[in-house]
């Protein structure tokens, strides 16, 4: 649905994207994770033709973003926390304005359902709504026509937990029943973990990890090591061990490509005094933090 290759973008002196490669497969929910300033929003804006890349290629629905026509936009739902809405409208007026652009694609029943679910006030101007309510209005206006591609840039900002839960449930349902493709950038790891089929992690303008959620959960393990005395960090370690830390007589690292049969041999080879080791599954938040720390330490070393 979206293919991004070697995407570069510079804002004056700041290199925002340093060759992003990313694929958003059809019919899946792809999460786009990264710390603040890592390049998530810039990448999405390039894909949505809101900014122009310096080099590289982007294809959305088979065309470059600058060639996206109204008929393409009728199949794309884009919502961003930074999106400016015509705030002189009330919600019904806003929907009256947007509805004709989508013609027969617009689903009035779905609109009514979402309107009821989101409990939006109908007589208040958008400018007077809370941040969360404005986001709900934006989501409503971008989903009511059942788009094939949903691009959500930090959509949960300001949403209360109940609505967020309902929204995500609905989104998942639609994804499954209608085959929607969802590309969502977020900081909310727990939520993303619940529904994302794929995850891509970007840091400092480069995508470091891109894989299916199940594969990631399968691959990543937190490994704890116990020693009789405080160990010494070996000079050379397998490349898929990241975020290695020693605390007294124990040590901990993240194995990014965990293999039970292989790791025991590697551990005893590097640490002959190892008393025991224990591998535990990681949630997405832990994986993200672990990777983020590793990238930061690598940058520090490099610097």
């Amino acid at each position: 649905m979206i293919t991004i290759r070697d995407l570069h973008k510079r804002y004056r002196r700041t290199e925002a994207l340093l060759g992003v490669d990313l694929t958003i497969p059809t019919g899946k929910v792809s999460a786009f994770l990264g710390p603040n300033g890592s390049g998530k929003t810039t990448t999405i804006k390039c894909a949505m033709n809101l900014i122009t890349q310096d080099s590289g290629s982007v294809e959305v629905l088979g065309v470059t973003p600058s060639k996206l026509k109204p008929e393409h936009w009728q199949r794309i739902g884009y919502v961003s926390e930074n999106q400016r809405l015509p705030d002189w409208f009330t919600v019904p007026q806003f929907l009256d304005y947007v509805r004709p652009m989508y013609g027969s694609h617009w689903d009035r029943d779905f609109e009514k359902k979402m309107l009821a679910d989101f409990e939006l006030p109908l007589k208040t101007k958008l400018r007077s709504l809370s941040r969360g309510q404005r986001m709900k209005a934006a989501l409503l206006s971008s989903l009511a026509y059942r788009p094939q591609l949903v691009v959500l840039d930090e959509p949960f900002a300001g949403l209360d937990p109940l609505v967020r839960d309902e929204f995500l449930s609905g989104l998942l349902e639609l994804t499954e029943t209608e085959g929607w493709t969802v590309w969502i950038s977020s900081h909310d790891m727990e939520e993303v973990e619940r529904f994302a089929d794929r995850v891509a992690i970007i840091d400092h303008g480069k995508v470091h990890l891109e894989d299916d959620m199940a594969a990631i959960q399968e691959r990543f393990r937190s490994v704890e090591l116990v020693f009789p005395v405080e160990p010494v960090k070996p000079a050379l370690m397998p490349e898929d061990w990241v975020d290695f830390r020693i605390t007294g007589r124990s040590a901990r690292f993240t194995a990014t490509n965990y293999d039970e049969s292989r790791i025991s041999t590697e551990l005893h080879g590097l640490f002959p005094s190892l008393i025991r080791h224990e591998a535990s599954a990681m949630n997405l938040r832990e994986i993200f933090i672990s990777l983020a720390k590793e990238y930061r330490s690598k940058r520090e070393v490099k610097a």
């Binding site: 109204p70 393409h72 009728q74 989508y102």
Partner: peptide
């Protein structure tokens, strides 16, 4: 490009 209609089929 920051206008509301930038991503709408107008």
């Amino acid at each position: 490009r920051t206008r509301f209609l930038a991503t709408k089929p107008m």
